[in-house]
Amino acid sequence: MARWEPDAPGRLAVAALDLFAERGYEATTVIQIAERAGLTKSTFFRHFPDKREVLFGGTTMAGRLTDEIVGAPAEATPLEVLAQAMDAIGREIFTSDRRELSARRRAVIAANPELREREALKGLGLTAAMSDSLKRRGVPELTARAAAELGALAFEIAYDRWSSATGGDDFAAVARKALGEVRAATELC
């Protein structure tokens, strides 16, 4: 593969997932990832600070959630706003062509305690971003926090279901269903 081909971050992510599956996360080096992608070590470090960030890099998702939450119609309830934000994430980030890579990513993370911890921290960051964005809309703090926690739970459920499936519904549909289930479960409490 030529070095000038587009989507270096995507190529690095695919190469990393391939190597993590073949050799394990700990036994894979940045140099091996870059070479597998047909790139240099310095290109790797232009896109990611370390090999862990190939799995977690970027703030695209938190930024998109924030933009969608803040820009949602004023009359929308907090959970409606979060559903709309998850729709946007599904259209832009969790596309059908990324489903298989997401499943592979989940498998690598599940096999490594350090990565599971990083995934949990990323989830907390997304929850905080949702809560802060809801507060910026004028939602009272306790309501914003509760809605963000419910939204984060629905998001986690949806991501697990969507990335485990081999086809079927898109992420937005899975997320809306999970949010409905979470909402219904809270009514039983």
Score class of each variant (00 low, 15 high):
Ala37Pro: 02
Gly38Asp: 03
Val30Tyr: 05
Thr43Arg: 01
Ala62Ser: 10
Arg105Lys: 15
Ala72Gln: 00
Leu55Asp: 01
Leu79Glu: 03
Leu39Met: 07
Thr77Lys: 04
Leu115Tyr: 05
Gly63Cys: 09
Lys51Glu: 05
Glu80Gly: 10
Gln32Lys: 00
Gly71Met: 00
Thr66Val: 13
Val81Gly: 10
Ile89Gln: 02
Gly58Lys: 10
Ala37Glu: 07
Ser102Leu: 14
Ala62Leu: 10
Val54Ile: 04
Arg116Asn: 15
Arg46His: 11
Glu75Ser: 10
Asp97Gly: 08
Ile31Lys: 11
Ile93Thr: 11
Glu35His: 06
Phe56Val: 05
Thr95Pro: 05
Thr66Asn: 11
Phe45Val: 05
Ile33Tyr: 07
Thr40Met: 05
Ile89Ala: 09
Asp67Glu: 15
Arg116Thr: 14
Ser96Lys: 11
Ser42Val: 12
Leu82Ala: 01
Thr77Glu: 04
Thr95Gly: 00
Phe94Cys: 01
Leu55Asn: 02
Asp67Trp: 12
Arg36Phe: 06
Ile93Gln: 08
Glu68Ala: 12
Glu80Asp: 03
Arg91Trp: 05
Ala85His: 05
Thr77Met: 05
Leu101Glu: 13
Arg64Leu: 08
Asp87His: 04
Ala76Val: 06
Met86Arg: 05
Glu35Thr: 02
Val81Cys: 11
Lys41Cys: 00
Arg98Glu: 10
Phe48Ala: 02
Thr77Gln: 07
Pro73Cys: 11
Ala74Ile: 04
Gly63Ile: 03
Pro113Lys: 14
Ala107Thr: 14
Gly38Tyr: 07
Arg64Ala: 09
Ala88Glu: 06
Leu55Phe: 01
Ile109Thr: 13
Leu65Arg: 06
